[in-house]
């Protein structure tokens, strides 16, 4: 049996492998190569070495990539903390034996089902309405990068909290009751139970949630495009949007720059995810 599996596994693997190569490996390799080229059509690319990378860091007077990176990092830090804390609080509340927990779980999960573009435009109207009432008429989300920043944070929290909450709920429900009971008998306070029992036991959920939120925050595009579009003056453009804006040109050189930004972006997201995965893995409780 095992022998025949060994013998025939490539045949079963082939369709997936084919799709993977076609839709991932090839574009990826092409993208990598194109970042060293100037091009308008991918078929007539012209090699130019590291020019595009040099431009991104040294020659771009406005430093759009670096600024986008700083903005994205700030956003990611704030959003990741807020999303996870709020989601955890909700999860804790909704695992208590309260009335209507199922109803609330569904309600909190729902925003996650709405697409980013739709959410972006809806929140834009919403926030513009509030700003006009609270600050003054004629002030919009796009007037000030602080509004844009907090608008994005609010939007992301609203959208992602439900999903993370579900993961935390699953984690919390998996904690053996004896463990909590034993802790109680030993006289542990609620805080001690939380820090010494609950959190270590749901470390795998935390890993998943952090992983998802961090990579989602760094890769954010739809919401950014719809909510602020980078306004004012590209100050709220996150990395993915910055790449798109850079590539939207007839300049063959800037196409290469956008491609190079894409490669850097990939390296960055990959690196962050690996570090993060490594760090949290080592803290997980081995069961």
């Amino acid at each position: 049996m095992e022998k025949s599996i060994r013998k025939y596994f490539p045949i079963f693997l082939l369709p997936t492998l084919f799709a993977f190569v076609l839709s991932f490996v090839i574009p990826f390799v092409m993208g990598l190569i194109l970042s060293f080229c100037k091009f308008y059509l991918v078929t007539d690319a012209e090699w130019q070495g590291l020019e595009a990378y040099k431009y991104i860091f040294f020659e771009d007077r406005k430093q759009t990539f670096v600024n986008a990176l700083i903005f994205t990092t700030k956003f990611a830090i704030v959003a990741v903390i807020l999303i996870n804390v709020i989601a955890f609080i909700f999860a804790t509340l909704l695992t208590k034996k309260l009335k209507g927990t199922n109803f609330f779980r569904s309600v909190f999960f729902m925003p996650n089902l709405i697409g980013g573009i739709v959410l972006g435009y809806t929140w834009k109207l919403l926030i513009n309405g509030i700003l006009a009432k609270v600050v003054e008429p004629g002030v919009y989300l796009s007037s000030n990068e602080t509004y844009g920043f907090w608008g994005l944070v609010a939007l992301m929290c609203w959208q992602m909290v439900g999903y993370m909450m579900i993961i935390y709920i699953a984690g919390i429900q998996n904690i053996p009751e004896e463990l909590v009971e034993a802790a109680k008998i030993d006289g542990a306070s609620k805080w001690q139970i939380l820090t010494n029992v609950t959190i270590p036991m749901i470390m795998s959920s935390i890993t998943i949630c952090l992983f998802l939120t961090i990579s989602n925050c760094f890769k954010l595009f739809d919401q950014n495009l719809a909510l602020t579009g980078g306004a004012p003056q590209r100050k709220t453009a996150m990395v993915a949007l910055d790449i798109t804006l850079t590539g939207n040109t007839t300049s063959t050189f800037l196409q290469g720059v956008a491609q190079a930004k894409g490669v850097l972006f990939f390296l960055l997201v990959g690196l962050i995810s690996f570090i993060q995965l490594f760090v949290t893995r080592s803290k997980e409780v081995q069961s």
Binding site: V25, I26, V29
Partner: peptide, 22 residues
């Protein structure tokens, strides 16, 4: 080994596709 070979072949081919045609 066969797989690895196939994969790297695919990569090399795409390189030619990207740069060779002009």
């Amino acid at each position: 080994k066969v797989l690895a070979l196939a994969l790297s072949l695919a990569m090399v081919l795409t390189m030619f596709a990207a740069c060779g045609s002009k």
